[in-house]
Design a protein around this nucleic acid. Sequence first.
DNA 1: GTTAGCTTCGTGAACGTTCACGTTCGTAGA
DNA 2: TCTACGAACGTGAACGTTCACGAAGCTAAC
Lengths: 356, 356
Amino acid sequence: MSPITSGRPAKPATILDVAAAAGVSRQTVTRAMNGMPGIKESTRERVQELARELGYTPSRFAKGLVQGSRTSVGLAIPDLTNPYFPAFASSVVELATRRGWQIVVDDYGHGGRSGLDAVDHLAPHVDAVIGYLGGYADQAQAALGRRPLIVLDEIPGGAAGSINFDYNQAAKLAVDHLRHTNRVRIAYLDACESRHPGLTPENQDPMVPSRVGGSGLCTVRGKAVADRLDQIRTPWSLITAEETAGAARVAAGALFQDRPETDGVLVFNDLMAAGVLKAAADAGLRVPEDCAVVGMDGIPLGELLTPELSTLALDLREVGRAAVELLDGLLAGAIAPGSDAARLTLEHRLVLRESA
Amino acid sequence: MSPITSGRPAKPATILDVAAAAGVSRQTVTRAMNGMPGIKESTRERVQELARELGYTPSRFAKGLVQGSRTSVGLAIPDLTNPYFPAFASSVVELATRRGWQIVVDDYGHGGRSGLDAVDHLAPHVDAVIGYLGGYADQAQAALGRRPLIVLDEIPGGAAGSINFDYNQAAKLAVDHLRHTNRVRIAYLDACESRHPGLTPENQDPMVPSRVGGSGLCTVRGKAVADRLDQIRTPWSLITAEETAGAARVAAGALFQDRPETDGVLVFNDLMAAGVLKAAADAGLRVPEDCAVVGMDGIPLGELLTPELSTLALDLREVGRAAVELLDGLLAGAIAPGSDAARLTLEHRLVLRESA
DNA sequence: GTTAGCTTCGTGAACGTTCACGTTCGTAGA
DNA sequence: TCTACGAACGTGAACGTTCACGAAGCTAAC
């Protein structure tokens, strides 16, 4: 008679049921279950055995209520399907687990949900949130009240903490490398309908250069790339696609057809760059001889592609570590919410493999 | 004075603090916060405003205690770095969220932790667990007591539910395809030190065929492949590697050097298959002309490789759906724990792209 | 003026656990 | 015999909510 097949599924057993069955008090059961001293060993064993038989599981709610909050952290992720995010999440989960925190995860990439929806869903169950929210920092922090929110890759707004990336530095690295290798017809493939931080109307640049179909520049990454390209007076074109490899492949295919003179492509992220590599192969272009391709993110996937992808790489484990340590400081009171110490900026480095 | 920068971080405000500040009772605050009827609209607004100012957040413990358990599901994952698992997790998270469940995730791939460690870590905080445990079904179910455990790709043991894959069918599909395309020197690359279900000593086959370095066959997938290869009397060799693309690349490199006659390679999973593709390119082999490569899993990555990877594909969203629906039935009492209805078997299909 | 009924709000109890004490019992030392 | 003390175990209170009631107060109908 296993504990699984026996019981009435009705009411779960409480500590009182175990106490009654063992003929002892609540407190003795507590002592037995939690390895506390002041209990005879034979009693402890008897109680534990009985608890097992009754299928007793201590209520996490009662326990939390009396012992004070264990730390539970929400993790809001736009899309687990993009390898960037699991790599980041993996690091966060590892370090959080090491601290004894639990991670409650929400992938809001389905069903038209937003980063704010994710935070709303997580809020009742967590003491803090870390997440790529795509532009809801203020509202999300409001939903969390005093509990710290750490936003990544987004204007911090009212968020307690933030981790950002220096896209100007990154864009300079990539653009200058393309120019130094004599690429003169450069294209930038931006993500559209992006969950990534948008440009606000006031800092959106109406003077974007010529483009090949699609809508305008819509990400801060794109803005940084555009700025750098303009700065060094290089002619360039803009294309956009949804943030998937497939969409990027189609868009880049059109680019290579419309503008065969293109000899360098900068791409919003590595996943889309993989699509561009495919499109180049489709078009019979040799990479990097005919056209260089540079991605962004530094996901492990890049090394497996053919040719291996050159990219503006982030150390994703480092990003996760920064987020967790920042949250740690915030929770411990060592870092003041919204202070400069709570605003981190990380840099990309240019990893040259085969594609550029 | 934002709510973030003001408060003493000492004691979080309770419902009584808000009630006192508003000059009303607990219950009125409850009504205001939870959108319940029977409260004047002006009172509701005043209370909500006050709650916001005080940084009041309802205690999830007190709430859970009185309202009964909201469903919180643990998700134990061996390695978020392998694209297989995020794809699966994404599906689970989506469907769980749709049901209003939360997902508490643990990636136990770091620091020498096991699937059992993951369950132990999750157990105090969840009502059920879904996971790839790598052989701890019995102990994990014991740790969970009456709460359902759903194990994937593992001998169910005492677990309430399980989802398995018909590797014999899958192996037949792949092996027969290789034979039909006249591959006569086939190699199988197995994962060693795997977190995947091991062969027990009694069903481990001591008569494995010749091998190229490494240890013996150690996964049920490998067993199925070996059985099918033996069944159709095809000479074959076995190699093993750690479950990463890099290790697979090295191992396959050695294979192509030692046994250049190899004209077909079956690989434990797609990630390792990506490494094999790299090794083939390193060795100057054309795929599939000189050597065919077939992976296993059907992760999206496969389509981005060059050549595109042929694979024994699982519909990973379907796997996630099966797990969530099975758990749903278990929690609702519609499916009996440990019953046949709680043991699902899914099948692979052979997706032929370019590599075979 | 009485009654009924609605709206608005308050109070005891309960959820299941742990904490901080108490109590009981037995044993050893004087 | 009395006292002291430790081991083993028990009891009231508290954690912060919501639920099920009950109590006001006001309005409207007769």
